[in-house]
Write a protein that binds this DNA or RNA. Sequence first.
DNA 1: GGGTGCATGTAATGGGTTACATGATTCT
DNA 2: AGAATCATGTAACCCATTACATGCACCC
Lengths: 200, 200
Amino acid sequence: MSQRTSSSMEVLLGLLTITPMSGYELGQTIRGSVGFFWNESYGQIYPNLKSLAAEGLVTSKTERHKGKPDRHIYSITKKGRERLAAWLAVEPQPEIPRNELLLKLFFGAQVPAEVLIGYVEGMMERARVLAEKLTEVWDAVSAQRQYPGTPYWKMAARFGQLRMEAHLRWGEETLTALRKIAVEQNRCTEAKRRKGHVGK
Amino acid sequence: MSQRTSSSMEVLLGLLTITPMSGYELGQTIRGSVGFFWNESYGQIYPNLKSLAAEGLVTSKTERHKGKPDRHIYSITKKGRERLAAWLAVEPQPEIPRNELLLKLFFGAQVPAEVLIGYVEGMMERARVLAEKLTEVWDAVSAQRQYPGTPYWKMAARFGQLRMEAHLRWGEETLTALRKIAVEQNRCTEAKRRKGHVGK
DNA sequence: GGGTGCATGTAATGGGTTACATGATTCT
DNA sequence: AGAATCATGTAACCCATTACATGCACCC
């Protein structure tokens, strides 16, 4: 009785409510807008668009170009909007957790603390970049004329901001703890080294 | 040239550094400890343990039981520890984002705000439960005698706490915004309804 | 008597990334 | 000249969940 559970088709429908687009543009749009909480690869997008068309949830117009491959511009149909609404009415399932950084940190005792410091710094750097990008997005959305989606896009962006702030605060905290451990570890190896020399 | 990229084997190795365990116990342990940032299903665990054994990264002892199926207790080998260390030395890849709540919120204009309010409340409830569980875990870990892993387990738990706090703060903010929209929407439908009646 | 937990596993299925294939244009 | 970007798509493969299969023990 298995049934499809993923939302990779619905993102496409959702974005097509804004404006008709080609598969490539959908990919770009996903990366530029919902990218920080959802992504799709082209290996998903193109086949899914075909299925959507087969179900009559989108229609496609083909633009011919000299030399270049044809461009298929997809538009959402009324049936597509209904499908989107039905999907929206179903409670979203909680985020499935898979955080490799935390996993490696959890087993961090097996490895020198310096290594972990690098990982945390890397994460913080990414968090800073994303936070900055999100404030830009937020400002841009706030400035432009009000679309029906505007308030919701702001909420989504705000989520990212608050989460990134939390990550950064955690990063600070964790770095100080890790640095203390690193100093400790260096003292130990130093001591052992000296002892080894004397022992000889 | 594809190469395995997932860490589902390494979690098992990592947990087996704490103590030898059976597949079932590993599943339990994952849920109870790293569960909030990593999970594995038994359909992954059992086959992966077999592969690990085939590679000589773990050994298994079979306990026979009357009636019940045999229990295989796995222990990590020296080679297994080396593999774990090698994996730890590789920079963790960033969390891949897939948050259905945010996705539905992003397309929230297509649906009455009350629905979204329900979703956000649901998420907040889960966040509260998890935050509470994490403080319990944190306290328990802090109280017990110092294992080498202790400081790292605390860092991981702390991450969850800060993230949940951020989610809750965002939830508050978002709920007030959504409630405003909901009131607005009700006013509109009311007005339309009245106008409709008068119009008749 | 029937559900839940212990305990192990396999098979089917579904979902998703990556690599490959193609070819023009534009930037460095 | 060579890399990157535009632009489309398919196929191979990997990863992961879910369902199924089995069977005892315990609780209500």
